[in-house]
Simulated assay, not measured.
Amino acid sequence: MKPFISLSTYGVINWLAVALLWGSPFAFGYYKVGGSALFLPLLFGWMQFIMAVFSNNKHGFFKQFPMEMHLFLDVVIGSFLLLSPFMYGFYTKEFWPQVLIGGLIFIAGAFTHKSPFTDRYRRHLPEGQLQGTDSE
C-alpha cells in the first residue's frame, strides 16, 4: 500500500498525539485506575514529545532524529498502546482512549511518506549505513 500521509501532516499529527497522550488520563478520568493505565500514556507522551522536538521534518526543532526511525518507533509504540489495556488487565475499566490514540499513532507511523513499512527499500552505503557525498 502506498503511503498517503505527508510529512507536514504527520508533524501536526505527532504534536496532536503528544497532547492527547498527556491529557487523556485526566480528560477521560482513568487516572483513578492508576498503574499502567496512568503511567503508559504519560511515558509514551514524553517519548513522542522528545522525538517530535528532535525529528527531521518541518515541525521538528533540532532536525537530528531520522524520520525512518521515528516512524518505526511510532508503529511499535502505537501497537503497544493498542494492546496495553488487554495485556495489563484494565480493559474492564477504561480502554477506548488508549486504543484510539494507539491506533492513530500506529496508522500515522505506518502510512507516512518515508515509512520503512510502505516506502521502497533504499540502498545504503556500507560505511555504517550512513550516506555522504564523499563515499561514492
Results as ranks from 00 to 15, higher is better:
residue 1 M to K: 06
residue 2 K to P: 10
residue 3 P to G: 05
residue 3 P to F: 03
residue 4 F to E: 09
residue 5 I to A: 05
residue 7 L to R: 06
residue 7 L to A: 06
residue 7 L to W: 06
residue 8 S to Q: 12
residue 8 S to Y: 06
residue 8 S to G: 13
residue 8 S to L: 08
residue 9 T to L: 11
residue 9 T to I: 14
residue 10 Y to G: 01
residue 10 Y to K: 01
residue 11 G to M: 07
residue 11 G to D: 02
residue 11 G to R: 03
residue 14 N to H: 12
residue 14 N to M: 08
residue 15 W to E: 11
residue 16 L to Y: 09
residue 17 A to V: 11
residue 17 A to M: 14
residue 18 V to C: 13
residue 19 A to W: 14
residue 20 L to R: 10
residue 20 L to P: 06
residue 21 L to R: 01
residue 23 G to I: 04
residue 23 G to S: 14
residue 24 S to D: 07
residue 24 S to Q: 09
residue 25 P to V: 03
residue 26 F to A: 08
residue 27 A to S: 10
residue 29 G to Y: 12
residue 30 Y to A: 05
residue 33 V to P: 03
residue 34 G to H: 07
residue 34 G to N: 10
residue 37 A to L: 11
residue 37 A to Y: 04
residue 38 L to K: 11
residue 42 L to K: 03
residue 42 L to S: 05
residue 42 L to W: 06
residue 44 F to D: 02
residue 46 W to R: 07
residue 48 Q to T: 09
residue 48 Q to D: 12
residue 52 A to F: 03
residue 53 V to D: 03
residue 54 F to Y: 11
residue 54 F to D: 02
residue 55 S to E: 04
residue 56 N to Q: 07
residue 56 N to I: 05
residue 57 N to L: 09
residue 57 N to R: 05
residue 60 G to P: 01
residue 61 F to W: 15
residue 63 K to N: 14
residue 63 K to A: 14
residue 64 Q to L: 15
residue 65 F to M: 09
residue 66 P to H: 07
residue 67 M to P: 00
residue 67 M to Q: 01
residue 67 M to D: 00
residue 68 E to K: 02
residue 68 E to H: 02
residue 68 E to M: 03
residue 70 H to R: 04
residue 71 L to Q: 00
residue 72 F to W: 05
residue 73 L to D: 01
residue 74 D to C: 05
residue 76 V to R: 08
residue 78 G to F: 00
residue 80 F to E: 03
residue 81 L to V: 10
residue 82 L to I: 12
residue 83 L to A: 13
residue 83 L to P: 00
residue 83 L to Q: 04
residue 84 S to Q: 02
residue 86 F to W: 14
residue 87 M to H: 10
residue 88 Y to K: 11
residue 89 G to Q: 09
residue 90 F to H: 05
residue 92 T to Y: 10
residue 93 K to Q: 15
residue 95 F to E: 04
residue 96 W to G: 00
residue 98 Q to E: 10
residue 100 L to N: 02
residue 102 G to I: 07
residue 103 G to K: 01
residue 106 F to Y: 09
residue 106 F to Q: 00
residue 107 I to A: 15
residue 107 I to H: 04
residue 108 A to N: 00
residue 109 G to R: 00
residue 109 G to W: 01
residue 110 A to R: 00
residue 111 F to G: 00
residue 111 F to Y: 14
residue 112 T to S: 06
residue 112 T to G: 02
residue 117 F to E: 03
residue 120 R to F: 13
residue 120 R to L: 15
residue 120 R to D: 15
residue 120 R to I: 13
residue 121 Y to S: 13
residue 121 Y to W: 13
residue 122 R to P: 08
residue 123 R to Y: 08
residue 123 R to H: 13
residue 124 H to N: 13
residue 125 L to C: 07
residue 126 P to S: 11
residue 126 P to R: 10
residue 127 E to R: 04
residue 127 E to V: 04
residue 128 G to C: 12
residue 128 G to A: 12
residue 130 L to Y: 10
residue 133 T to I: 15
residue 135 S to C: 12
residue 136 E to H: 05
